[in-house]
Write a protein that binds this DNA or RNA. Structure first.
Lengths: 201, 201
DNA sequence: TATCTAATTAGATAAGTATTAAATTTAGGT
DNA sequence: ACCTAAATTTAATACTTATCTAATTAGATA
């Protein structure tokens, strides 16, 4: 995801009329005239805004005779937001060297890893407790190559080195911001974005 | 969160120069002059953009003598994005009645709920398998009042009706978009936003 | 006080954008 | 072929915004 795409996405949402269109579409598909009436603008205005939303992939369209029905594209509404974070954090490594400090949480992590991994590095099971789960996920995620684009198949094979249930772990990677998916490829997020168990309440 | 705030947030990110400022700040705090030089603009331009980012709470500032250092506010970068989704989906209930269909997944849900809840409704443990976990979380989440603002303490008490580890479950609610947090209050998301196990790969 | 530096403000310009009315197009129906 | 309904395009207007230069302010120091 490059700069222009992210800017285009935010421009699409940077207008009250367009947000109100999306709010209305959240209730189900609607055509241009109905939108125009509900928002007290002309159909031409709806066409204008629909173009911007379409360019950012935020809506879908379906034609029935003369009428065009608009609907939400929830996938892009969520994932474009995540892509913004990825773009901001991806490039730089932090300028201040924080990594070499001996922190007290290292002991806890060691214990969890000893308990949940076999001596030859396989994951016994995914911890139910979130705190421990994040430690386990991070322990696997750091073995991924940063900046590399993984095909889904390739990522599955990698995860299988640790556990058979690759689908669950792949999904957890996304949910907890260890990785992000763009189209069909997966990529590691920068560490600043990872869910951190230290900050749990 | 109201419309104006969401629009203001997206306007703040709807400019390439401002995004590039955030990218630079992701590497650590920087002052105005350095930002101006790295972006090949004048300090006045940085002041202009900093004002917009500040109004959207996306950056923090620290003064040292004459120099003002800017840094990221990662909390708002993430949470304002989630607030957009919440605003879009919160209001409407879907116009088409999909709820009354007898779907085949109902059996699966029933089985999971029988297995993980005691006969008097307590959660035995949180399933490790994501699919089952989402069913369990949803089963609890539907008991929350939609549109109500829950204080953290109040939410904890509610969760404790089902399980002692309220912190983990509260966190899972956020992670899987069952609820969102704004300042110190928690609120149920509309169902369209909930993570759905049917859509898992 | 005078001076230096970083940041801000004020004013100007140029580019971008939201909206509308009017003309045009698209896809069917009679 | 003609008519109708919905959407789009065009052209114009008013408003917003990104950027710069030049002047000013704020804070620290000699």
């Amino acid at each position: 995801m490059q700069l222009d795409k992210v800017v285009q996405y935010h421009k699409a949402l940077a207008d009250p009329t367009r947000i109100r269109i999306l709010i209305l579409l959240a209730g189900g598909e609607l055509n241009g005239q109905v939108l125009a009436e509900k928002l007290s603008v002309t159909p031409a205005t709806i066409t204008h805004h629909a173009a911007k939303l379409r360019e950012a992939s935020l809506i879908n369209e379906r034609r029935d005779k003369n009428t065009i029905f608009f609907s939400l594209n929830p996938y892009f509404i969520r994932n474009s937001a995540l892509a913004t974070e990825a773009l901001i954090y991806r490039h730089n490594q932090p300028r201040e060297g924080m990594e070499a400090m001996d922190n007290p949480s290292a002991r806890v992590q060691d214990t969890v890893i000893r308990n949940f991994f076999t001596t030859d590095g396989k994951l016994k099971s995914l911890p139910a407790q979130l705190k421990k789960k994040l430690i386990v996920l991070e322990h696997i995620a750091v073995q991924l190559e940063k900046g590399k684009c993984y095909q889904e198949k390739e990522l599955n094979e990698f995860i299988k080195l640790y556990h058979d249930d690759f689908a669950t772990i792949r999904r957890e990677f996304i949910m907890h911001h260890f990785m992000f998916r763009e189209r069909d490829v997966y990529e590691l997020n920068p560490k600043e974005m990872w869910a951190r168990w230290e900050t749990l309440s």
